[in-house]
Design a protein around this nucleic acid. Sequence first.
DNA 1: CGACTATATTCCTTTTGAGGTATATGAATC
DNA 2: GATTCATATACCTCAAAAGGAATATAGTCG
Lengths: 135, 135
Amino acid sequence: MELVKIYECLCDLTRLRVLHVLARGPLCVCHFQAVLAEPQVKLSKHLAYLRARGLVSVTRRGNWMVYALPSAPPPELRANLACLQDCAREQPVFRRDLARLERLAPTLAETGPGCCGPATRPPRRARTAAPGRAR
Amino acid sequence: MELVKIYECLCDLTRLRVLHVLARGPLCVCHFQAVLAEPQVKLSKHLAYLRARGLVSVTRRGNWMVYALPSAPPPELRANLACLQDCAREQPVFRRDLARLERLAPTLAETGPGCCGPATRPPRRARTAAPGRAR
DNA sequence: CGACTATATTCCTTTTGAGGTATATGAATC
DNA sequence: GATTCATATACCTCAAAAGGAATATAGTCG
């Protein structure tokens, strides 16, 4: 893996945060939304970016896409991810993410990384008029 | 120092090579030209970039600008520079740079990092004697 | 002072990426 | 088969940055 490609992935804060929490275990996009408090599009795009460069892997699980760090990362990646963990330890942004991840932990343990438990799902009110219909 | 800023500096190969050789000791721009085999403008601009972000420091020495790693880098920077050294060990580009640096070593030892010894200088026809003395 | 040297800066073009809005896709469920 | 949910993609705009050519600047030497 090219060293520069790795650093290109690391030079965006959102991606750093993604990789940082992924070290704790696989996550799906809706969990990323909860943990990082960022909009879905933004996360999807950054995850696609990381995926295209081989920094994360994906597996579909029903409706959910579960992202994870590669099972056997090349040494340069391993080294840099370790370094990131080390550097992030002190910084508030990353600590906040971890805190929100912890708060999610029970749900995660219960349902696995591939889905959002019913608790996290919106109320689902009876509906008729749906705005933003496609085509 | 902001983590992302560091990675932004690392995500260009030329800058990586600059930082990598700087770990061996301070260098002036003309030595960078010799070691990295890149045009002056390119190096000057990347050095300015690194300087603006505090990854390198400069001191003028006569006509020469001597660049060096900061004397007391913050922990995040220290960690990442170490990581870079580690990762670069295997890669041909970086090894080549080091080889050219070694070849420059005698000159460096003789004249200090602040000037290009007579050996590296163009022939300088007919002129009066011994040019390029730094102070 | 004037020539020269080492390095910096400006201007230009091209590429890349970030973020947002709107829309598409694929699986599940009724 | 139509809805709904989770996620992805397309399109757009804006900013940054890379590389090259030309030129500027700041020292030094004679």
